[in-house]
Amino acid sequence: MVSEDKAKLKLEHLHLSFGGVHALIDVSLDVREGEILSIIGPNGAGKTCILNCINGFYRPQQGNIYFEGRDITRLQSHKIAGLGIARTFQNIELFTGLSVQDNLLAGRHFYMTGGLVGSILGGVYLGRTHREEVEQRRAIEDIIDFLEIEAIRKQVVGTVPYGLRKRVELGRALALGPRVLLMDEPMAGMNLEEKEDMARFILDIYEERVNTIVLIEHDMGVVMDISDRVVVLDFGRKIAEGKPSEVKGNPDVIKAYLGKAAA
């Protein structure tokens, strides 16, 4: 399934620093079409920074990012989203005042082209915006069904428990209809059962919806089980890359995780 030569997302020599702090130093990596790539590393290694750069939320001082061959390094965040890159966040970043269903609909933002005039007239039982709303509603109901969150559809997100909120956030990312899904610690703070659920969802998504997934995760068991390839970061540098089994034995990786003495 993984095609070796085709890089869906390509990062070339990224440098990112805040004042004197170097967050990313010369990081290059490829995300290939049809793979689950995990980025691991100790806290503060710069994992989230990579996702933030891809999203256009941070601007790298040097280096370029290509998505399907197109340079997206200087593109605005919303345009990058429009190209089909969706993500979830480490500390759930939902629209707390909206219902679950509306959060997902907000993810469908790109598919609605009615604009302001359409919105104003949208209440009339005809007109494009109204049809659009119904259409998108159907699309998100499919995702709601898939993620098994029917029961909380109308609840305001602020009142939904943590584990479900993670799922809603995933649903919102899926609503974008992405071609690449970036997930930042989807299992942080979950118990074993919830983690298993989430792993199942990720695999299902991979099978049915988005064939290229970038995952940041601390749970090594999950990472080793579900990823095709693993990239290891430490202090902003890429120290290893390869199949899970290869990375596991890499002395640099062991050193980064366990300290010098263990190496």
Partner: peptide
């Protein structure tokens, strides 16, 4: 009608979490 359709959702998204809104494709 503005607040219950797409435009209104974008407004609330910006109010609640402007960074996430941008990443979700809202200009």
């Amino acid at each position: 009608n503005i607040v219950r359709t797409n435009v209104g959702r974008a407004f609330i998204a910006i109010r609640d979490n402007d960074l996430a809104a941008e990443v979700m494709g809202i200009h």
